[in-house]
Simulated assay, not measured.
Amino acid sequence: MGAVMRILRYLKVTPGNGLMFFKYGHTYVEGYTDADWACSITDRCSTSGYFIFVGCNLVTWRSKKQKVVSRSSVEAKYHGMAQGTCELLWLRKLLGDLRCVPQKPMNLYCDNKAVIAIAHNPVQHDRTKHEEVDRHFIKEKVDTEIVSFSIYII
């Protein structure tokens, strides 16, 4: 609520500025996620981030230092993907309250093929046992076709 009040105060004191949203004729929900591995020199925690579009309009974004130290870049990106998936689910619920539920699975793009492979095939036990909760959470959302994952190349 504090963040909302801050935004409203900003909009009140800057009447010439504002947030522009354009109508594109669709409400496809797409997200992009990325993470860097062990970037913090002091504790080697990774930083992950995501941003999400609804109908080509940027509606939410976040960058956050992860609480755990990842053992590989795939694990760091997988934690970031789990955070992006949570945000997509929150946005789906919000759109449902507005009676505008997405008709097709929401896309979440990642730039790592191994992360996408783990999301679609969680049987790789030796590689993923230390990230088991995220793995089951993401697999459940893929199986119910709420979220789909794709790769993007920069």
Rank of each mutant, 00 (worst) to 15 (best):
P105M: 03
D111L: 08
T85G: 12
E75I: 09
R99H: 09
C100N: 15
R92G: 03
F51Q: 05
R71Q: 15
W90C: 04
N112C: 10
F53M: 11
Y78K: 08
I116Y: 04
G96M: 02
Q124R: 08
T42I: 14
L88T: 11
M81I: 13
E87P: 09
C100P: 01
F53L: 14
N107W: 04
V101W: 09
N112S: 12
H125N: 05
M81Y: 02
P122M: 03
T47N: 12
G96E: 04
T42A: 15
S70P: 07
D43Q: 08
C56A: 14
P122N: 06
L88E: 06
R99I: 04
K67I: 08
S72A: 05
K64H: 11
N121V: 13
L108F: 07
T47E: 12
L91H: 00
P102M: 02
K65G: 07
Y50C: 10
E87G: 01
T42G: 09
D43H: 13
D111Q: 10
H79C: 06
F53A: 04
G84H: 12
K104S: 11
D97Y: 04
S73H: 03
V123D: 14
R71K: 05
M81A: 10
V115Q: 05
T47C: 08
N112W: 06
D111M: 12
S46I: 00
G80R: 09
Y50W: 13
R92A: 04
C110E: 12
D97V: 01
R44Q: 06
R127D: 02
L88S: 05
R127G: 00
E87K: 11
V69I: 14
K93Y: 03
V101C: 07
S70R: 03
S46V: 05
T128A: 05
R92Y: 02
A82F: 02
L89V: 04
S70A: 15
A119D: 03
H120N: 15
Y109Q: 04
S63P: 01
V59R: 07
V59N: 12
G55C: 13
V54H: 13
V69E: 08
S46P: 02
H125W: 11
S72N: 14
W61F: 05
A82Y: 05
Y78C: 10
T128N: 14
R62T: 08
A117P: 08
V123A: 15
A82S: 15
K65L: 06
R127K: 06
R99E: 13
S46W: 01
G55M: 15
T42N: 14
A117N: 14
K104P: 01
V101R: 04
D43T: 03
G96L: 02
I118Y: 06
T47W: 11
L108V: 01
R44V: 03
A76R: 07
S72M: 07
K65D: 10
Q103D: 14
L98V: 06
N57D: 00
G49M: 03
G55R: 03
V101Y: 05
E75R: 12
K104Y: 01
A119M: 06
P122W: 01
G55F: 12
